[in-house]
Nucleic acid binder design. Structure first.
Lengths: 215, 215
DNA sequence: TACAAAATACCGTAAAAAGCGTATTGAAAT
DNA sequence: ATTTCAATACGCTTTTTACGGTATTTTGTA
């Protein structure tokens, strides 16, 4: 019997999953969590085999939760169940140690199949994402040897202010810095993220909120 | 008996709702749609009283769908069922004619209550959104007398290129225009949206994709 | 057909960002 | 004890954006 923990802040979805899983005697939903912190609190006592993890959750988001799970409970298999379908999110979660990535529109059959395969040690992603999984597997960027926190906390602070429309001068005033310093941070951020203008930075930041630790 | 149509591209959620509604004999799910176009195709033959409408859907998104519904079937009550919880999205949908806005983490009780009240001609939103509903009701910006398409198609094209990191010079080259023209468009866009720099424009565009008709 | 709106283009100036640098300080890690 | 890195700050140049205009042509529609 495979013990499953579901983490999602949408109760409608959790209720749906409960009913869907009711037909499978070999799968058992042993716990549900509405945010990442609840997942962390529950795993110790509940010992799930597989966690179905949403990305957008309050308190601790899916990415942050996965980071903690990977360092404290590396044997638990994590399957991301998200609506985010952009390549960057999928790669980020795989690189952080997720074994599967399913869209929320997945049907029961694929969900069951994914859990079975992943519980046996494999990978499984929604059909449209196969090429991303291939790319990930070829890249060798597994969770154990992965690049840590790309941006420093100061840089994240500045990214957030840029996203909210502040100019370097405004940011300098807010943070009691010289505009030169803010300018340097901005340049370093661009360099680290391989970007070259504000529009792309804002886009990147909004699309990678969870991974940047923003909001 | 209240006839309900559900529009959502996530089958897990639809399946969950089906089971949730099974306990209520006075509500009947007469149809489900996976995108806005299916909604439009179905309403004529199915005559639902209430539509539970997601915003993020392929082909025709929730906003576009609501626009069509309001002009062709103004008597059908539309309740938005979305995960988007920012004020702008809520206001946009209310102003477009939605009678309710619920988060997807709403529990069964509130969902039933919302459908009942709205079917009787009222408004209903998730608890956290009450102040936004109040603001909307006070503003008088109802669907019938509402400001049409804010940005022209050319302007939307340019917004999209800006979001993707292009400079005015690059956009000019791509669209065979003078950089002056692109500059003017940019100015007009800022003026229309009441913004004053690129970062805010990108943020606005990404947060209002559906309403701007982007992607 | 006439009017309004959208798309086009230009002029000038000021502010901001982008792209090269260098350099000092302090804290953490090896 | 030394290296590394984050945070700080400055210099200089070029490009791009932002903001104030004006004006012509095209297009849709009343």
């Amino acid at each position: 019997m495979i013990k499953i923990l579901i983490a999602d802040d949408h109760n409608v979805l959790i209720n749906g999953l409960k009913l869907i899983f009711a037909v499978r005697g070999d799968f058992k939903i042993i716990s549900v969590a509405n945010n990442g912190q609840e997942v962390i609190d529950l795993v110790k006592s509940e010992c799930p085999d597989v966690i179905l993890l949403d990305i957008n959750m309050p308190v601790l988001n899916g990415y942050q939760t996965l980071e903690i799970l990977k360092s404290d409970y590396p044997e638990i298999k994590v399957i991301v169940l998200s609506m985010l379908n952009d390549k960057r999110n999928v790669l980020n979660m795989l690189e952080a140690g997720a074994k599967g990535y399913l869209f929320k529109d997945t049907d029961d059959k694929h969900l069951f199949k994914a859990i079975d395969l992943i519980n046996q040690g494999g990978y499984y992603v929604s059909e449209d994402l196969q090429h991303i999984l291939d790319e990930f597997l070829a890249s060798g960027k597994y969770a154990d040897k992965k690049n840590k926190q790309l941006l420093s906390s100061r840089e994240l602070e500045i990214v957030s202010l840029i996203v909210n429309g502040n100019t370097n001068a405004e940011i300098a005033e807010l943070l009691f810095l010289s505009t030169r310093t803010v300018d340097t941070h901005r340049k370093n951020i661009f360099h680290k993220l391989n970007l070259n203008n504000t529009a792309l930075l804002v886009k990147y930041a909004l699309e990678n909120k969870a991974f940047l630790g923003l909001q």
